[in-house]
Design a protein around this nucleic acid. Structure first.
Lengths: 237, 237
DNA sequence: CCAAAAGTGTTGCTTGTACACCCATGT
DNA sequence: ACATGGGTGTACAAGCAACACTTTTGG
């Protein structure tokens, strides 16, 4: 002990513990043409180069995981502000055959109409409907399953759509989004009544006539979001 | 294998990325004398040595975070099987003044009547009622808040108690547990009806007479848990 | 006129909540 | 006998789900 007095100063208790590569992987959801989609990338390095994967990146020394995820998302979609939430950590020692990498997953919701399509195209990324996903690397399949159930949970207590739909949308488009998320159908009348009872949307004086002869009113989210309304939207499970 | 080939093997893309200390911190909940309690430890090393903290430890090279958490819990409570669930990651670069440490938090539920009290005593740990917690190191206060709301969420859709109560308990004891978790009171009659309607408990032919004159029947969880019953227990929020 | 989607109304069932009331028993 | 917690019943309100019905308009 005496001999190591000076060493003890330099060598803190932290140093005797191993360090790990830490990455973030993002499940990027978007909604387009009535389908819930996920943005996937062809992996750019070995192992498993070229295979489909979630977009990810390593966490730098001076950034939090959230910051890392936002950095990755900005780089790949060009979007600054988007919905982002921690999902789960994946830490099996052998989950990545290339090295021991601990990965934190995030769920991101983006407006497909707003993102930088050029950036996405360059990187070779593609939007995949969640119902027809390709084979994915490592444990990314599990990550997506986890992200999807988190999204369902979120959508069941918070009215989502602001993060996924265009500024103006019809109630049927919102219903379609919910149907895509929950993979089930909702009664049109009951859904409409439930949503309107939340008083979070306001009707515009314009109609969308592309999807029906009669035309459906556009709605938009109210700007003032008085407090975090966390009423239950749909019974789930 | 040629020399260049070997080098290529050694220097992968992984190597250009930094590594981080990764720790787990556990919010260990127990229930005793009508109170929900949390097991806290005096920190054993600098910085902030001696201050109260969650029990934690560093993740080793060949173990997952869950394994690390179980190892830590076994070391500190002597319990092998307990309820354990990932909570959230805390990764602000400066969250630990001693070094950059990324921490994953876990929620553990333990049966106070079953844990190794001697082990706990030795380490200087103490059970603190969640309503009267001491000041904690770093961001452990936030970790606990997060853990508590996760516990509430879990308790609102899954009947918990198996993990916290003794083998046999009265419905009023279960009600008290729920009241401790949600910090509110429940109507005795309605609570009892709701719980019994789940058909997850079976009544024993014995009564607890210590808490009332009439005596209350003991109940226990049914052994066969047909599928994961995830019915809503209480309306929350 | 008719098909098709938008939107409204009605009804019955389930669930939640408040609260009254009986039961058993130790003091 | 009565206070105390255990346990049951009732009555009303809210929420949900199924579905009938009206409105609008392009073909």
């Amino acid at each position: 002990m005496s001999k190591s007095a000076t060493i003890q100063k330099l060598t803190t208790i932290y140093d005797i513990h191993p360090k790990h590569h830490v990455a973030v992987d993002c499940s990027i959801f978007g909604y387009e043409q009535g389908e819930l989609k996920l943005l996937l990338y062809p992996r750019s390095f070995e192992p498993a180069k070229g295979n489909w994967s979630l977009m990810g990146g390593f966490v730098k020394i001076d950034e939090s995981m959230e910051e890392a995820a936002r950095r990755v998302l900005l780089q790949t979609t060009g979007l600054h502000d988007l919905f982002l939430e921690q999902a789960a950590a994946f830490s099996q020692p052998d989950r990545d055959p290339g090295a021991r990498v601990i990965s934190m997953t995030f769920v991101a919701l983006i407006r497909i109409d707003k993102h930088d399509k050029e950036l996405v195209r360059e990187s070779g990324a593609q939007w995949w409907p969640v119902t027809k996903l390709p084979k994915l690397i490592f444990d990314h399949q599990s990550m997506i399953e986890n992200a999807l159930s988190l999204l369902q949970q979120k959508a069941s207590i918070n009215l989502i759509g602001r993060e996924l739909l265009p500024d103006r949308f019809t109630l049927m488009q919102l219903k379609n989004l919910y149907e895509a998320i929950f993979q089930r159908s909702f009664d049109p009348g009951n859904f409409r009544k439930k949503i309107l009872s939340l008083e979070m949307l306001e009707r515009l004086n314009e109609k969308n006539t592309t999807e029906s002869k009669k035309g459906a009113f556009y709605y938009q989210f109210k700007t003032v979001d008085f407090g975090i309304r966390s009423e239950r939207i749909i019974k789930f499970p």
